[in-house]
Design a protein around this nucleic acid. Structure first.
Length: 559
RNA sequence: CGGGGUGUAGCUCAGCUUGGUAGAGCGCUUGCUUCGGGAGCAAGAGGCCGCAGGUUCAAAUCCUGUCACCCCGACCA
């Protein structure tokens, strides 16, 4: 298109930026009875031009845009100049480090060891498992050259151009089953070498078409566990054990309730025999797959030739598993806990638990207040909490107190503590909790605050979980007919392009059927999230095909 | 890969139709007054107008090419 016509088109199509387009999933948030336990500050505008909420637009106005603004305002991450890639900023990375630390401990406690495998996977390795190839082929970054040279007229390029073509292209790992399988094949000879329980913390690349910070980026950080076992049962046990670890982590550390379940065929990991997952419900009532654990059978053992001799000297292929969670968990935390004022961090994973804001605008008391704050910080930092000690920021930056407080609100720090000359005189602090309204502040004696800080944090942790769980329950519905199902989710898109009703979790009798799933996905953007592992069997008949079933499955729109 | 759109200050954008030598808001810096919840006034810094060609006395603006990014679809932790 020429420059002219582009420009003209721009002028014609003026009413763009329908940023405020209303979001029909609004009810989910507007109602959200359990989400606001404190009395609202009755929407009265704070002094000046300050907006009613720190994040604009609000969740009800435009949820996807709200999400992006929270990521930005909380300084968790930003987009980079590299297509589809994000820069994880210190506050966001510290959150990831805390996720890593907590999960890593759980992996070690279940007998796993960390190792590191190459980023580059020879194409020939990748080709070994047919379904695996098919599943990932379309989203691979491929390294084809190993050198650069100055461009020439003949190349029609200036600057540097790739040179030195590789004999065999290298795939930038989208996942590591094949490269780790190659190592496992060498490491495993005897049944005495099994089980082999390995985990890797790494980055992976999947050349996604559409990206969203933390939820889907071309490069992301994750952990991938890979294990090999002598028997099918043992491998299956491992698969489910790690699913349990993920569920435990999600609920007890992230304060994000999850449903453990098994994926249907269409949603299975390419190359897996069974895929299990944890699924969470976000505030806009869309589901998020927050972690997966795969029983790989002997598929990859065959592909990579992972063989061992058993006690009788008979050679057989090992049974393998793989399981992973990624930086997507951070997206899940945002969409589970954050509000219209920004991020809300579950205390056990918060990069920092307490910010102390010295009120030092009177020069004569400034130093004394600051000293008092530093002593308070030092005392707090000695207190053990959630596998580390209480982390404290003393924010004595030379900026206005209001700005300072709001920055920390947006970052989601659990506790804000103001200390001014008046508080110091009474040996008390002025404390605000991020899970309550921002004006809801209480004076607490300093020693009492120090003595109860971990209790307060734990109370916040359980409050966040309870709210999220109530939200999920409020938006989970047992549905027994196709008509009801369709009404619950509505059309795929409204006429104006805005997202349609998100529905929530629908529990329906469903006999797995690829064709049904394809149709539901096309018409309603709804997918079968999983068949829950827990809960009693309940005979019924599939609402789509009438076939007999023994359990209900979970359907939802999903990220 | 299809369909649509956009590149101008750190950010969000105006200016382009009808060419005349660069604008606003926010942010940033400085000063004064404010200051226990997002301040006010004043001054200031900051731009190869995505890139390369072309037309013209003159190009952010017109023409040609090119690159990048965004949105919708297919795909997806």
């Amino acid at each position: 298109m020429s420059t002219v016509s582009r420009r003209r088109a721009k002028r014609r199509a003026r009413p763009r930026n329908s940023l405020r387009a209303t979001f029909s999933g609004l009810a989910a948030i507007a109602e959200k009875p359990p989400m606001s336990n404190q009395k609202q500050p009755s929407q009265q505008k704070p002094a000046g031009n300050a907006p009613a909420s720190a994040i604009s637009p609000t969740r009800a106005e435009n949820y996807p845009e709200w999400y992006q603004q929270v990521v930005r305002a909380a300084e968790l991450a930003e987009t980079s100049d590299v297509r589809g890639c994000m820069v994880i900023k210190p506050w966001g990375y510290a959150l990831w480090e805390n996720i890593q630390r907590s999960l890593d401990k759980m992996f070690k406690d279940t007998g796993h060891k960390n190792a590191y495998f190459p980023l580059f996977i020879p194409l020939s390795y990748f080709e070994k498992e047919a379904e695996h190839v098919e599943g990932f082929a379309k989203e691979c970054a491929v390294v084809t050259h190993h050198r650069l040279k100055p461009g020439t007229k003949a190349d029609g390029k200036q600057g540097l151009v790739p040179d030195g073509e590789l004999q065999e292209p290298l795939v930038v790992r989208p996942t590591s089953e094949t490269i780790i399988g190659a190592s496992f094949a060498k490491w495993v000879e005897s049944y005495r070498d099994l089980p082999l329980l390995i985990n890797q913390w790494a980055n992976v690349v999947r050349w996604e078409m559409r990206t969203r910070l933390f939820l889907r980026t071309a490069e992301f950080l994750w952990q991938e566990g890979h294990t090999a076992h002598a028997t099918r049962d043992e491998a299956m046990e491992e698969t489910l054990k790690m699913l349990e670890v993920y569920a435990d982590f999600a609920e007890n550390w992230m304060a994000m309730p999850v449903i453990k379940g098994e994926k249907t065929e269409g949603e299975r990991f390419p190359g897996a025999v069974n895929t299990y997952c944890i699924e969470a419900l976000m505030q806009d009532r869309k589901a998020l797959q927050a972690g997966t654990s795969h029983f790989l059978g002997q598929n990859f053992a065959h592909a990579s030739d992972i063989k061992f001799s058993d006690a009788e000297g008979k050679i057989s292929h090992a049974w393998t598993t793989s399981w992973g969670v990624s930086t997507r968990l951070i997206g899940g935390m945002i969409m589970t806990h954050a509000d219209d004022d920004g991020m809300v961090l579950p205390p056990r994973l918060a990069p920092s638990h307490v910010v102390i804001i010295p009120v030092t605008h009177k020069p004569e008391t400034a130093q004394a207040v600051l000293d008092y704050c530093n002593r308070l910080a030092a005392d707090l930092r000695k207190i053990p909490y959630a596998g580390r000690t209480v982390d404290v920021e003393v924010d004595n930056r030379d900026i206005r107190g209001g700005d300072k407080a709001w920055q920390w609100i947006k970052k989601g720090i659990p506790l804000r503590v103001e200390v001014g000359p008046r508080d110091m005189a009474e040996d008390s602090v002025f404390m605000a909790r991020r899970d309550r309204a921002h004006k809801d502040k209480v004076a607490v004696k300093r020693d009492e605050f120090v003595a109860t800080v971990t209790q307060i944090l734990e109370d916040m942790q359980s409050t966040l979980f309870a709210r999220a769980k109530a939200h999920r329950e409020h938006n989970t519905k047992r549905i027994d007919s196709r008509a009801e199902f369709e009404a619950f989710f509505g059309a795929k898109q409204e006429e104006d392009g805005a997202a349609a009703a998100q529905g929530g979790f629908a529990l329906v009798h469903y006999a797995p059927d690829r064709k049904v799933e394809d149709e539901l996905k096309a018409k309603f953007a709804v997918t079968c999230r999983c068949i829950p592992l827990e809960g009693a069997d309940e005979p019924g008949s599939c609402i789509f095909t009438g076939k007999p079933t023994t359990r209900r499955a979970v359907f939802a729109k999903a990220y």
